[in-house]
């Protein structure tokens, strides 16, 4: 018979207690999913600490699904703090309004910055290397270049177990879409979404939120836009301006960078002096500037505000005639 020193006993008891406390975490349930690269990944059944390596197409949808990532990719401009593109405008959530750590910009995100937020799941895009982060937490690779950006919601809801939240968002959007279709004769109205970019006219076909709305409401489009692949955009020479005319032209501007509707019109004028005279949409007061942040996000909040914008622009108005 021998006796252990009391200090050794205390240490052993502490170690046992620590092990017991850690057991729930170690025993966290997992499930297996297949990501967009075809990789089979074992992820936590209920991930609580997600690091999102793309702001606009991962972080914003996650926030709309009710999941706040612990860290996110973002953007920088010299004179301001880092921000998540379009997030504050669409959700109110950003690095300065929520406990989200800025992880970096572009595709070169430092794995050490990701490790520092202690994630239990990392969601990254196809232009990032999952192996660089694999030792930190399970990595799920999603392709945000897909033509239907809203498919990302299905994937993110599947990954985060927020299918119910997605159903609510879809239900709300369906009501908004029905209102639009009931009040606007969409199939007989052509719409084009354009922006003046570096001396060219960029036209978007069914791109992101505005694209989905225009498609599902069944709006018509100019023939030139039909040349563009679904969910993509193309740059046209200014010489083809009349081919881009439509009943309604929505021209986008970057509100988040401080641009205004007037900036969008000025850019068009600089690209094609006197452009308005050659677009019947403009002549009829139907060339309208809309924020690019909402039109190009994959966001249910954006879908709602855009639906009401189109109703306000295109629904019948009282026939007011002077006596």
């Amino acid at each position: 018979m021998f006796s252990l020193p009391s200090r050794a006993l205390t240490t052993a008891a502490a170690a046992l207690l620590a092990t017991c406390l850690a057991l729930p975490a170690l025993a966290q349930e997992t499930r297996t999913i297949t990501d967009d690269a075809g990789r089979s990944v074992e992820i936590p059944a209920d991930p609580q600490r997600i690091a999102s390596l793309q702001d606009l197409f991962f972080s914003v949808p996650l926030i709309e699904l009710g999941v706040t990532p612990v860290g996110s990719h973002g953007r920088v401009v010299i004179e301001s703090q880092p921000f998540m593109r379009s997030s504050k405008m669409l959700t109110g959530v950003d690095f300065d309004t929520a406990p989200i750590t800025f992880l970096g910009t572009g595709t070169e995100i430092d794995p050490e910055a990701v490790a520092a937020v202690d994630p239990d799941l990392i969601i990254l895009s196809t232009n990032q290397d999952p192996e660089a982060f694999a030792s930190i937490a399970p990595t799920v690779l999603l392709d945000f270049n897909r033509s239907d950006k809203f498919e990302l919601y299905d994937r993110l809801a599947e990954i985060t177990g927020t299918g119910d939240a997605l159903k609510l968002l879809e239900t709300r959007y369906a009501q908004q879409l029905n209102q639009l279709k009931a009040q606007v004769d969409a199939p007989n109205i052509s719409v084009n979404v354009i922006a003046a970019v570096e001396g060219q006219i960029r036209s978007y076909r069914h791109f992101a939120a505005l694209g989905r709305l225009l498609d599902e409401a069944d709006f018509a489009m100019p023939d030139a836009v039909k040349e563009i692949e679904y969910g993509k955009f193309a740059d046209f020479s200014p010489e083809r301006l009349p081919e881009l005319d439509a009943d309604l032209i929505l021209v986008t501007y970057r509100a988040e960078e401080g641009e205004t509707a007037q900036d969008a019109y000025d850019l068009l004028e600089a690209t094609i002096p006197g452009y308005c005279a050659f677009l019947k949409a403009c002549q009829n007061g139907r060339l309208i500037a809309v924020p690019r942040d909402e039109t190009f996000a994959s966001s249910y909040s954006a879908l709602g505000s855009l639906a009401y914008t189109l109703i306000a622009l295109l629904a019948p108005v009282p026939d007011v005639r002077p006596d």
Binding site: R75, V76, V77, I78, E198
Partner: peptide, 25 residues
């Protein structure tokens, strides 16, 4: 480096920096 620190506003200069005659004022 300025590009990395100022990605968003730098977008307007992306094509100009390659040398372009399109849309010049």
């Amino acid at each position: 480096a300025i590009h990395l620190l100022n990605q968003e506003t730098f977008e307007n200069l992306r094509v100009w920096l390659t040398g372009s005659l399109a849309g010049r004022d």
